[in-house]
Amino acid sequence: METLEQLRDRLLARFPGAEVTLVTNPGAAAQHSLLLGASQAREIACFLRDDPALQLDYCSNVTGIDWPDKEIVETTKTTVPDPAGGPAKVVEQKTKRLQPGYLEAVYHLYSMALKHGPVILRLRTANRTDQANVPSLTPVWRGCEFQEREAFDLFGIVFTGHPDLRRILMWDEFKDFPMRKDYVEPDDYEWEPTPHGGVLEKAAKHYPVAATPPADTPPAPPAPEGKQP
C-alpha cells in the first residue's frame, strides 16, 4: 500500500480545495492518520472505499474523543537592552492562550479485498457546544451506524446525514454526555471500606473530618433519616 503522504497528495490532487492534513503519531505504534475537513469528507470516504488501489471496504472502529478547552502557557524570552548601558537583560514573558476544545471522530479503515490497513481518518467538530457536528460516514460504510450513534450518545457528536441518530446506550431522557472529560456524575457516594484515588476524594467530600474511617470502626447501623453527618 502507498504511504500516507502519497495518499494525502493523491487525495489533494483528486479533490482540489479539500482539507487533508497528516496527523503524525509520536508513539511506538506509528499509526498516523489523516485529518479531513468536513466539507468533502464523505466524498473522500467514498473514494477511499472504491479506489481500486485502496479498496478500504471495511470500516472497523469508529469512536469519539473529547478534547476540552486547554490553557496553554507560552513563555517568550525577549532581550531588553539596558538603557544604562549594562549587559542586556533577558525578560521572560508568559502568555496564556486558550486553545478551544473540540470533539473528534476517528475511523479505522481496512481492506478486506486487499487485506491491508489500517488507514485512520479523523474528523473534528468546530467546538464542543453548538457546532458539534461532523458528516456521518454511515452512508459509505453501514458498519458505522451503531458506533456513530454511540459517539453521539456518549460524546455528543452530531453526525449529520446519519439515518437514525438517537441515544443508543443511555435512556432517551438522559441529558448529559457521560464520556466527556467534564461530565459530573450524580452525587450518590456510598461508604466504602477501602477508598482510593478518585473515590477517596469523593469520600473526603462526604465525610469532611475523617476521609477514611478508622480501621477498627465498623459501619454504624442505618441512621434515621436526616441524621447524616
Binding site: 456510598e190 478508622p214 470502626t217 459501619p219 454504624a220 442505618p222 433519616e225 447524616q228
Partner: peptide, 9 residues
C-alpha cells in the same frame, strides 16, 4: 434502603 453512615470516634 438507607445508606450506611460512619460513626466518627
Amino acid at each position: 434502603f438507607q445508606p450506611p453512615t460512619i460513626v466518627r470516634t
